[in-house]
Amino acid sequence: MDINEIKSDEILDVKGLSCPMPLLKTKKKLKSMKPGLILEVLGTDPGSKNDIPGFCKKGGNELMAMADDAEGFTRYFIKKG
């Protein structure tokens, strides 16, 4: 899926934060969202590349896409399940 076609409903910026804060904030944000809505997370911690997919898989949320941005961070698109 082309990430530029995904329209996110909410954006969570966790750039500069390291483990466990990115995952903690992602979980908190997702809790406040309705199922089906899409959250875009912007992060820089290398650990998130394993943490966020693993969390989505386990927690019943769908990781639609993740991609490194040219500006030095990674974008994650999560559909709340």
């Binding site: 910026d13 966790v14 750039k15 500069g16 934060l17 820089t44 040219a70 500006e71 030095g72 961070f73």
Partner: peptide, 9 residues
Amino acid sequence: TKAVKVPAS
């Protein structure tokens, strides 16, 4: 968190 400037690639 937005205060942090991420160095451009």
